[in-house]
Design a binder for these strands. Structure first.
Lengths: 229, 229
DNA sequence: AGTGTTGCGATTGGATGCAATCGTGTCGTA
DNA sequence: TACGACACGATTGCATCCAATCGCAACACT
């Protein structure tokens, strides 16, 4: 999952989106921590392309909010202030319940079993990256029923921009808080099994809000966040 | 407001964002109706630039959801299906009340007077473009207090993608529906004056939902929408 | 007559090269 | 020694040029 070299094969016709996807994955994976500079030529060499598709990729990622561009200066991985991060989380509180609502009717028993399994696996994991991956998997699986284009992309974007802080935050929470996360996940599954969409929406909303509140209590995350596996 | 030729002056350092802004304005203004093809060279000539910044602009607008790119084929102005439009409106129902909540505390008496004035002007206008402009002005003025970066951009994007349909819809509504719109606008102002944020949120939500419902009753808007002033 | 195929024009995608701009280290001066 | 001006290297931004791909039309074949 840790974006390795894409090597060659320049034949498909869209190198810019490949660069964009790879760079996005790399940023989300933590290879480029927030605030780090992105040099066009470095990326171009890393992914075996010219600077033109790299710049197009950067424009896309800028629109995603993942990188910040300054004219004639360069590109940096976006660094969110505490207020901005709080804002994104408030937005997620409003939007993700809707996404769950649109998804819920299309989730069959098999999908719910899968959710249950993911929740169980999370409860037995202490590895941070594994925890993050499972958490992401869980929520995205719960949203998988929505064949939406716009809203899905929107939420994906919100997740991407906050991923570095979610990682840093995960390092901070104690066993008790983790337990609450798992309970909430199980409550989501239960609500979905009962077909009680309202309840599911409320749990998701509270789930995100609680994370937001806890993040606000750790401002140190937003001053200097570094990640090196 | 109808994006004329930007002529020359290529000295500022960022031609791609200028092209992006101009093209976005042109699309929102209706110069390029949904589904119409966008040829790179045509845009390049129109704005006095090369194809490279045009392509970067197109990538940005694609991330905005305004244009749709197909590899090795070209770019088209995004055409929303009824379902997708409905989805965007549902998203707006959730997000814009939040934006109003973040904005409300920073709106002073002068700003509220301005809102009142805009609502009055709208009530006395029959011109469609003027109506749209005032409506946009009204809502954005109500959101102006929020110094948010992410959420503001997000809502701006949602407005942009739905603008063509809002225009087509405006042509369809009768005097009675218009009256309701104005009443709702006044209710928003009243709620803001009273400092009753909850009430304001509810009105905005209902305001958008009602528009969504009415749009869903006019599927013909989504089959063939053409606009020529 | 209908359908699959092949070739050409038009358009997009990407690499290279050059001008403009920004950062930074050095030097000169008070 | 502290501060400002200047020049150089590094990096970005853009235009031009070439290759790859797609759409479309004419053609051949069953």
């Amino acid at each position: 999952m840790t974006a390795l070299s894409a090597s060659s094969g320049t034949r498909d016709g869209n190198a810019s989106v490949r660069v964009a996807d790879a760079l996005r994955d790399a940023i989300v994976a933590g290879d480029f921590p927030p605030g780090s500079r992105i040099r066009q030529e470095e990326i171009a060499e890393r992914f075996g392309a010219s600077r033109v598709p790299v710049r197009e990729a950067l424009k896309m990622l800028e629109a995603d909010g993942l990188v910040t561009l300054r004219a004639n200066a360069g590109a940096w991985v976006s660094r969110l202030s505490l207020d901005e991060c709080d804002e994104v989380y408030q937005t997620r509180e409003r939007v993700e319940p809707l996404l769950l609502r649109l998804s819920a009717p299309h989730l069959d028993a098999e999908a719910l079993d899968r959710l249950e399994r993911l929740a169980e696996q999370m409860a037995q994991t202490t590895e941070i990256e594994e925890f993050l991956r499972l958490d992401r998997d869980f929520h995205w699986s719960s949203y998988a029923g929505a064949d939406t284009l716009v809203l899905g992309d929107l939420v994906r974007r919100l997740w991407s921009t906050t991923q570095p802080y979610r990682r840093a935050y995960t390092r901070l929470i104690d066993a008790h808080s983790q337990r609450i996360v798992h309970d909430e996940h199980h409550m989501i599954v239960t609500a979905l099994r009962d077909g009680d969409i309202e309840a599911g929406e409320r749990v998701v909303e509270g789930h995100i809000r609680r994370t937001r509140r806890l993040l606000a209590q750790h401002p140190e995350v937003f001053t200097a966040a570094s990640t090196t596996p």
